[in-house]
C-alpha cells in the first residue's frame, strides 16, 4: 500500500543554525504517527515544511502521491492541519468559520452546507453552531479547531498539540474522535507533550531532539531501547560514596550514579525484585530514607534519550 506521507532528508537552517537535520519518516493510511520532542527540538519547523509553509533546504515531502514542491496545490488539498492555536475567527460563529474553510479549500458551493453539518455533528457542536466562537469553552474551541481541518476530507491530518488546556472530558472526546478517524483509514501525524496521549493514539513514535530523529518505533520498541530496565531512586543518609561503590557491584545493577548529595539512581533488570538485596547491600553503610522504583515507560525513554536539562 502506498504511504500517505513520505518525507525524506528534510533539513532546514536559519543563518547557519540547523533547525532540522535530515529528518525522514513515512505514515501509512490508517496509521497514527507521533512526533515527540522537547521545546526547540525542531518539531514545529518540521511541521511547517510538511504543510508547505516553509521551503526545506533539502529533502522531499510527498502526500498521497503528490510532491509538495512540484505540485503544492494537489499535496495541500490532501492535508488537514490543526495548529496549536485556535486559528479561527473569534468574532464569527462556528458555522461561519467552517463555511469559510470550506470555501478556502474549494469545496463545491452545493456541498458546503451538508459537509458543515456533518463536521459539526462529528465534533459534537451542532447545538452551538450559531454562537460566536469567543463564547465557546476551551474544549469546544479545540474541537471546532479540529473540525475545520476535516471539512475537505484530508488523507493526512496533522495535529500540533491539539489538547492543550482542555478538561479531561473534552480530551477524551477529542482522542476518541481521532481514534475513529484513524480506524476509518485517515493517516495522522500527532505532536503532544502529553506522553499518555501519544502512547494511546499513536502506532509509531519518533523522538526528535536537536533537529534530528533520535529514535523511532512502536512504544514497545522505544521502551526496549533503554533496556526495559527499572529505575530505582534511593535517598541515603550516611556514607553515600561507599554505598554507591557497593551497589555498582551488585548483580543485576547495570548502572549506578549519584544524582544529588544523598541521592542515587540505579538501573536494574527487575528492580522491584532486587530491592531487598539493594537495602541489605547498604545496610550498615547508609540508611535508606526513601526509595522509588520506576518501571520503564515512554516518558522514561524520552528523558533517557533527550536528557533532563530544562529547555526553553
Amino acid at each position: 500500500m502506498t504511504d500517505t506521507l513520505t518525507c525524506a532528508n528534510l533539513s532546514k537552517s536559519y543563518g547557519g543554525v540547523v533547525a532540522v537535520r535530515d529528518v525522514g519518516f513515512t505514515i501509512a493510511p490508517g496509521e497514527a504517527y507521533g512526533l515527540l520532542g522537547p521545546n526547540g527540538a525542531g518539531k514545529t519547523t518540521t511541521i511547517s515544511m510538511l504543510v508547505g509553509l516553509l521551503k526545506p533546504d533539502t529533502g522531499t515531502v510527498v502526500v498521497g502521491g503528490a510532491d509538495l514542491s512540484a505540485d503544492p496545490m494537489a499535496a495541500k488539498a490532501k492535508i488537514g492541519y490543526v495548529p496549536q492555536e485556535i486559528a479561527l475567527y473569534p468574532d464569527l460563529t462556528g458555522r461561519e468559520n467552517l463555511r469559510f474553510f470550506c470555501r478556502l479549500f474549494g469545496l463545491p458551493r452545493k456541498a458546503v452546507r451538508a459537509r458543515v453539518e456533518e463536521v459539526l455533528d462529528l465534533v459534537g457542536l451542532a447545538d452551538r453552531a450559531d454562537a460566536k466562537l469567543d463564547t465557546y469553552s476551551g474544549g469546544m474551541k479545540r474541537r471546532i479547531n479540529i473540525g475545520a481541518a476535516l471539512l475537505h476530507r484530508p488523507e493526512l491530518l496533522i495535529l500540533d498539540e491539539p489538547t492543550v488546556g482542555v478538561d479531561p472530558q473534552s480530551r477524551k472526546s477529542i482522542l476518541d474522535g481521532l481514534e475513529r478517524l484513524v480506524a476509518d483509514g485517515m493517516a495522522l501525524l500527532y505532536t503532544s507533550h502529553y506522553m499518555e496521549e501519544v502512547e494511546r493514539v499513536c502506532d509509531r513514535i519518533a523522538i526528535v531532539d536537536h533537529g534530528s530523529i533520535v529514535a523511532e518505533g512502536t512504544r514497545h520498541e522505544l521502551v526496549a531501547l533503554v533496556g526495559g530496565a527499572d529505575r530505582i531512586e534511593l535517598t541515603l543518609d550516611g556514607d553515600v560514596d561507599t554505598a554507591l561503590a557497593k551497589l555498582r557491584g551488585l548483580g543485576g545493577v547495570t548502572e549506578a550514579v549519584r544524582t544529588a548529595a544523598g541521592s542515587v539512581r540505579l538501573i536494574a533488570e527487575g528492580g522491584r525484585y532486587l530491592l531487598p538485596s539493594v537495602i541489605s547491600t547498604v545496610d550498615g553503610i547508609a540508611a535508606v530514607t526513601a526509595v522509588e522504583v520506576v518501571e520503564p515507560d515512554l516518558e522514561a525513554t524520552f528523558l533517557h534519550l533527550t536528557g533532563n536539562t530544562l529547555r526553553d
Binding site: 504543510v51 509553509l53 494537489a74 495541500k76 492541519y81 486559528a87 479561527l88 475567527y89 478556502l104 479549500f105
Partner: peptide
C-alpha cells in the same frame, strides 16, 4: 495563526 493556517490550504 489564522493567516498561516490559510496558507496551508491549496
Amino acid at each position: 495563526g489564522m493567516l498561516p493556517r490559510a496558507f496551508t490550504a491549496p
